[in-house]
């Protein structure tokens, strides 16, 4: 099931879709499944499941510390697929967010096959642009997976067009120049970038990087088809005293953000 389904449902309701990120394996594999399910029940339309990586160069300290802990606990690519399977069973589209090397090592074709078998919708590749490598797009197409690539405020119009033509599912627009992490301001660059992106494609455009509350979600929902929140969810888990408190806190944030994308 393509992620597009979640965006179409939101559009039919006259609102933006809410996309929530959490890494697989934090605080444990089962704990991450519990937290992600709670996020979905509280109003997240689609889920990004982070595949932990040793060198996450576009992630800020919050996500770094969670994925470090997940790796130290021994989280494997197979565990990530198990999380995908459990989340997909909720009916919410589940995409994997992964740096390229773990997928390259697993084998692009094998990963596409196994992700599709687990019910996953696709992959967001933060350090793989469509022109970087020949192996991923054909493998994903063969298994009907979404290929979600990033556009950035620094992207030229020409590169935006190249990128969106390779995207399936949706386009991920990074609101600011920088790494993941919550911000007081989500950036004036975001609206302009979304406009430039929408000029090249009919795919939904979701905005990520920096969103931490319902007010910011509402601000972005005014010009984008989707709002992505990541570090803010991870922080809820990191700061919780135990899993139950963390899951409750994640659900509370999801509800706040879900209200934000519905505010008009």
């Amino acid at each position: 099931m393509s992620t597009t389904v979640a965006f179409e449902k939101a559009r039919a309701e006259g609102r933006a879709a809410l996309v929530g990120y959490l890494p697989a394996g934090y605080p444990s594999v089962d704990g991450s499944i519990t937290a992600i399910r709670a996020m979905v029940e509280a109003g997240v339309d689609a889920v990004e499941i982070g595949l932990p990586y040793s060198d996450p160069l576009i992630d800020g300290p919050v996500i770094q510390s969670a994925v470090d802990a997940a790796l130290k606990a021994g989280t494997t690519t197979t565990d990530v697929l198990r999380v995908v399977e459990a989340v997909a069973a909720t009916g919410a589209p589940a995409v994997v967010m992964s740096y390229w090397n773990p997928l390259d090592r697993y084998g692009a074709a094998a990963f596409a096959r196994d992700l599709a078998a687990a019910g996953g919708s696709g992959v967001i590749t933060p350090d793989l642009t469509p022109d970087a490598d020949d192996s991923w797009i054909p493998a994903a197409r063969e298994h009907g997976l979404d290929t979600v690539f990033l556009v950035a405020p620094s992207s030229t119009d020409e590169r935006i067009a190249m990128t969106t033509s390779a995207c399936r599912g949706f386009v991920y627009a990074t609101s600011v120049m920088g790494v993941t992490g919550t911000r007081a301001q989500v950036g004036d660059a975001a609206a302009g970038l979304v406009a430039r992106t929408k000029a090249t494609t009919d795919l939904p455009v979701a905005v990520g990087l920096g969103v931490s509350n319902g007010a910011q979600a509402a601000e972005i929902a005014a010009f984008a088809d989707g709002v992505v929140a990541g570090s803010a969810f991870v922080r809820r888990l990191l700061e919780a005293t135990d899993l139950a408190a963390g899951v409750a806190s994640v659900a509370e944030l999801a509800a706040d953000l879900a209200g934000g994308v519905r505010a008009r």
Binding site: P126, A132, L150, S154, S155
Partner: peptide, 12 residues
């Protein structure tokens, strides 16, 4: 070789 980086760095 090649270029496996976030899109944000491509322009630079």
């Amino acid at each position: 070789g090649g270029r496996y980086v976030p899109e944000a760095l491509i322009a630079a």
